[in-house]
Simulated scan of single mutants.
Amino acid sequence: MINVCVACGTSYLQDEIEHCKICEDERQFVPKSGQQWLSLETLRASHSNKWQQHLPQLLSLQTVPRFAINQRAFLLQTPHGNVLWDCIANLDDASKTLISALGGLHAIAISHPHYYSTMQDWAAAFNAPIYLHADDSEWIMRDSPHIQLFAEDEFEILPTVKLIRLGGHFAGGCVLHWQHENGILLSGDIVQVTPGADGVSFMWSYPNMLPLSATTVEKIIQRLAKIKFERIYGAFEHREITFNAQRILLRSGEKYLSCLT
């Protein structure tokens, strides 16, 4: 039986559960009430996924009522196949039906371990590879034949879809760059879109408010200055910048560095 951590949504085999390694790391947290677990069957019975269309070829899905970290995942529809970016724990029947009707999944790619959740079940349902950076392999809590590790700083999934390892929040932390329209960056929270959707920030631990170093942020900014993107879609609902995103990101990076110095 598969159980998921209520705090972060990471999935474990029931017989192997001792504690949630993801939550016990300082980049997440163990709730004051302690660690709790939920079976996938119970989660599916009590929750569903809502969908939102952002662009004709870009959809997001998010579990309601909110569950665990409450991130959203994205479905990219490209001429070369569909990609699921990041993952949520609840794989409900409606999501299976919708994704299948849209052509299934060519690949799954995940920004960092906080969003690994039930990636193994999504991959099995659609017979899709999961692309993860090798630097984060220690955080894989359930093995799967679908997991494919890559070690490069840039990894092309499809002709217009590339993963870029930025590090920072996690050593293997990645963003996804899609050469669609004027360029789209799907950032998870490796680059966090701020609540006003007019800036971004960078943290080593968001819940514990531990920042990244100036050197690390400088490297992230330099990498992202070399690619073209007009839009950024972050991990959480309403956290997207749909105009001048690259300029806003570079300006935010300068502000972050000025605060540190």
Rank of each mutant, 00 (worst) to 15 (best):
E18W: 11
G104V: 00
L212D: 11
I2E: 04
K162W: 04
H169F: 14
D121A: 14
S39D: 00
L98E: 08
S213W: 04
I157N: 01
T194E: 15
G253L: 05
C87I: 01
L58Y: 09
N82Y: 09
L132H: 08
D153C: 03
E254D: 15
P56C: 04
G199C: 13
A109T: 11
A151W: 08
Q14I: 12
A101Q: 13
L158Y: 01
A124R: 14
I157P: 07
C8P: 00
S95Q: 03
A225V: 05
P113F: 03
L84F: 14
G172T: 05
L158W: 07
Q53V: 12
L43M: 02
L158S: 06
T97S: 15
P129A: 05
L257N: 13
A128W: 01
Q62D: 07
T97Y: 09
Q35G: 01
A7L: 11
D92G: 09
I99Y: 03
A125F: 07
N244V: 07
A107P: 00
D15A: 14
V64D: 06
V64G: 02
A134Q: 15
S137Y: 10
N90V: 04
S111A: 08
L76E: 11
A123C: 11
K96I: 12
K228T: 13
R142F: 00
A171F: 11
G173D: 01
F155V: 01
F229D: 07
E138V: 07
K255E: 15
C8A: 04
L132S: 06
W85V: 02
I22V: 07
K219Q: 15
S205G: 09
L210M: 14
Q28K: 03
E16V: 05
